[in-house]
Nucleic acid binder design. Sequence first.
DNA 1: CCCAAAATCACCCAAAAGTATGAAGCCTGA
DNA 2: TCAGGCTTCATACTTTTGGGTGATTTTGGG
Lengths: 151, 151
Amino acid sequence: MSSSNSGNWWKHLALYGITLGLLMASLQYSKLHILTYGQSEKWYIIVIAILFAAVGIWAGMRWNRKPATSKPDTPSPVLPKDQILAQLGITPRELEVLEQIAEGKSNQEIAESLFVSLNTVKTHLSNIFAKLDAQRRTQAIQKAKSLGLLP
Amino acid sequence: MSSSNSGNWWKHLALYGITLGLLMASLQYSKLHILTYGQSEKWYIIVIAILFAAVGIWAGMRWNRKPATSKPDTPSPVLPKDQILAQLGITPRELEVLEQIAEGKSNQEIAESLFVSLNTVKTHLSNIFAKLDAQRRTQAIQKAKSLGLLP
DNA sequence: CCCAAAATCACCCAAAAGTATGAAGCCTGA
DNA sequence: TCAGGCTTCATACTTTTGGGTGATTTTGGG
């Protein structure tokens, strides 16, 4: 209840909100004039509530939707791999590193597998990230795959 | 939700409703003088609006969350995805996280997209790694794909 | 031979990711 | 009602990654 309860309070809030809405609606229908507002003001409030609920639903669905349109990437690129590599300026060694991160290897493992130092792998990776415009290895993998550089 | 929840949520709802009703009634009686002023009515309407906006957002996310987990694309795994998931003990939420790391997102981004804390994402990931026998996110992606859990 | 690109490595620092442990609230099914 | 799985979150700690800079070697053409 004190400070770090952030998990579920808003669920309750939501329930309260829904309940409030139902309550107000039923109050309207039953003509129990408990509230001291005039008729027009009551309806005004209800309209506002419904309106905002609708807007909220729309916003919520909007906000949480994943970009489903990103599926039709480049499955059959017209350009051959070599050309894409050249275009991006990715060198053969960098591609090797790229392939290995896609296999789930750590930098250390890649270094050992290529017989180079960890620092070298990092350097290659930095260059790859710059050329693919990625911030993370997972992102680089994703981009490389959609470019057809990786299976 | 998977259709019917037998009968618990509406009980809470009813309870909240009753409580709220009593609360509102007492408010009416004790603060009649305030409510006669136009200013407090405005305030009340604003609260209603915010409340319903919150409810709407919540509902929208809720309705949008379930379809997110059920993916229509089933390549051709020998076992249905559900069965593999059950076998490994991977929960729906964990799968959601798994899907997002495969999209190249950072833990922080996933946390924001799922409206949970960073710590929660890490916990889910730890569990995923254990269940997939992976040490790294890239490895988990790899394994999940070869199992048909991811496209 | 000389140059330039590629490959290699080192440090340092910051940020992100991963590990371990404990715990609370919710939901479901027995 | 009670146990157990799921989800959530926290704290503390270690490891891995990523970013920036600079430097040395290799190598292949011109």
